[in-house]
Design a protein around this nucleic acid. Sequence first.
DNA 1: CTGTATCCGAGCCGATACTG
DNA 2: CAGTATCGGCTCGGATACAG
Lengths: 158, 158
Amino acid sequence: MEPSHSDVHGDCRAISDVLARIGDKWTVMVVGLLSDGPMRFNELRRTIGGISQRMLTLTLRGLERDGLVTRTVFPTIPPRVDYELTDLGQTLIVPLKSLFAWATSNRPMIAAAQQAFDAATPNTPVPHPPRQVPNLQAARLPKMAQAFDDAPGGRNGR
Amino acid sequence: MEPSHSDVHGDCRAISDVLARIGDKWTVMVVGLLSDGPMRFNELRRTIGGISQRMLTLTLRGLERDGLVTRTVFPTIPPRVDYELTDLGQTLIVPLKSLFAWATSNRPMIAAAQQAFDAATPNTPVPHPPRQVPNLQAARLPKMAQAFDDAPGGRNGR
DNA sequence: CTGTATCCGAGCCGATACTG
DNA sequence: CAGTATCGGCTCGGATACAG
């Protein structure tokens, strides 16, 4: 018998579990940044720009719990803590790239569909309004680009 | 030529936008079910099993707004409404498969990491407790399997 | 610098009741 | 059958203050 259909039960939970982790507001961005190499707490904080230290701590703690990042403390003064992707964390970048490619290449189409839909039903309030993620400051971030760019099926020459 | 580094600003927003849509509790499951072909409202509702009609409506409305599914009304009595993935919606399955493959093949490792972490810090409450998605009933759902199975890197034989 | 603790608003999501 | 409306709990996530 083919390998398919084997454990649908557990399988559909699997993807939900993953989305419960990376589906939140900040996780993918952190992973993307970290994919370029280890970073310190405030380095992440500054680069992202719109995250509170509370959420950064929580996000990192969650990733650490799942074995996706390591937390290394240097007992110096002032203290220094490095966060780095584990091997497992690195592998996550692959499917993330796939998603990233889809997102970038289809965003215009989605935006158009939304406008068309909203125009057709002006009275109905939008299902779920945005969750705006503040843009990173353009300055210090070829990092994020390397992280997800060069994905398959993503973009042609531009 | 590498097209990289071109529009980092817009790009990191792109992936966040996508996650804002598919990162919620039900969307991927609906897309997975729909990937096998059109389905009616209550058919989806029954198959998923744990979703309220409110959330199913909202989820479908959101997908429709983004141009990922179409809603077709048959003005019969009783009324009948079919939901179906658009071409754009179909393309989403590709990156979803990628994620699905990663999820299934790494879930044991993640679970282990969590246990280890929780064992090491018994007092600290978990960052974000679960978001349990009720399992689909095993009965009528080879559908979901076809949707995401045969993904690359996912599973070898067996 | 790297966190933790607390307060608080906003939204998600389920339960229930009602309509065409 | 396929929704809409309304209520209420709960969680997410920002702001602020404090600690090692």
